[in-house]
């Protein structure tokens, strides 16, 4: 089959387009799937995490995936971050060192520290950030990964990708998983049946945890939201058909037309921020 991919921005339409791709292909087995990107004139680089997760699930069902008619500018971005090399393309050098390469991790949280050290702490190319921001950034990125690993129950791994924008002084970073999603996790663990967007609200606020048992939880996404507010950044979460966004303390939720087969957490970090971070106790 051939699927026509539109522009992919990190917004509800972009997530919906990827969820639609999944909806159209989820039953396919042993098929040839061509993703026609003729109309994909824009692709937010970090969205490779969500795109890659879906393509990985297609290949898991022994479909052959190819990306065709990619506009030159998009092809360059997806080649620099190592995404296209997984689909027959070549990886080209990232001259300015502004990409955070596309990665797939197995479900082991011990890799997270090394990855964060290599990609964020020990890179000379990253924008100059205050020590406080670099610490909070590494903690927040780690929190997203560990949260995905603990809660998704995925056997397909965790996918990540990012991009620095030195002139805009911004860092975009996205982590995606193909797990059961926040809504189903809440339903399974504590028998709360919420809508997809309410489920994300539940997971990001208040004293909420699906962990059960001996280890308390439920702080990770809440702390992340607090950091993003202080940083004047933005966080977007998609899970199932729910879309949730927090920017400057304002929360926006929406229902997508199609279900994303897992959870995506995407952050935009203001790298020029010089705040000294202190978390206020409840």
């Amino acid at each position: 089959m051939r699927f026509h991919l539109p522009e992919i921005h990190r917004n509800p339409a972009g997530f919906d387009a990827l969820a639609y791709l999944y909806a159209q292909t989820k039953e396919l087995l042993f098929d040839d799937i061509e993703i026609d990107m003729k109309e994909t004139h824009w692709f937010d680089a970090d969205m490779c995490a969500a795109f890659g997760a879906i393509l990985y699930s297609l290949e898991k069902r022994l479909n052959t995936v190819s990306l065709i008619q990619i506009p030159l500018s998009v092809k360059e971005i997806l080649s620099k971050n190592g995404f296209l090399s997984r689909y027959g393309g070549v990886e080209i050098p990232d001259q300015w060192g502004t990409t955070i390469s596309y990665q797939r991790f197995d479900k082991n949280d011990r890799y997270v520290a090394r990855y964060v050290e290599n990609e964020f702490m020990h890179r000379s190319e990253i924008p100059k950030m205050s020590p406080e921001l670099l610490k909070k950034l590494s903690e927040s990125i780690s929190e997203i990964f560990v949260n995905a690993i603990s809660h998704s129950r995925t056997r397909l791994g965790i996918f990540s990708c990012g991009q620095f924008f030195p002139t805009k002084e911004r860092l975009d970073f996205t982590v995606a998983d193909l797990g059961i999603g926040i809504r189903q996790n809440i339903k399974d663990c504590i028998e709360l049946d919420l809508s997809a967007e309410k489920a994300i609200v539940w997971a990001t606020e208040g004293n909420s945890t699906t962990r059960g048992g001996n280890v308390p939880g439920g702080l990770g996404l809440k702390l992340l939201g607090e950091f993003i507010d202080l940083n004047h950044g933005c966080i977007k979460i998609v899970s199932d058909a729910g879309y949730w966004q927090r920017e400057n303390g304002e929360i926006f939720t929406a229902l997508l037309n199609y279900r994303f087969p897992g959870t995506v957490v995407s952050v935009e970090i203001n790298t020029a921020d010089t705040s000294a971070y202190r978390l206020v106790s409840d």
């Binding site: 610490k135 504590i190 539940w202 909420s208 059960g212 308390p216 439920g218 702390l223 106790s281």
Partner: peptide, 28 residues
């Protein structure tokens, strides 16, 4: 700042173990 985080974790844990079921129900 790490002590602040630890304080949050401890407060959260005390609340959780006080009554794990209620912990989630309150937010519901």
């Amino acid at each position: 700042d790490d002590q602040d985080l630890l304080d949050r974790v401890v407060d959260n844990a005390k609340l959780y173990f006080e009554n794990p079921e209620r912990f989630n129900r309150v937010f519901q």
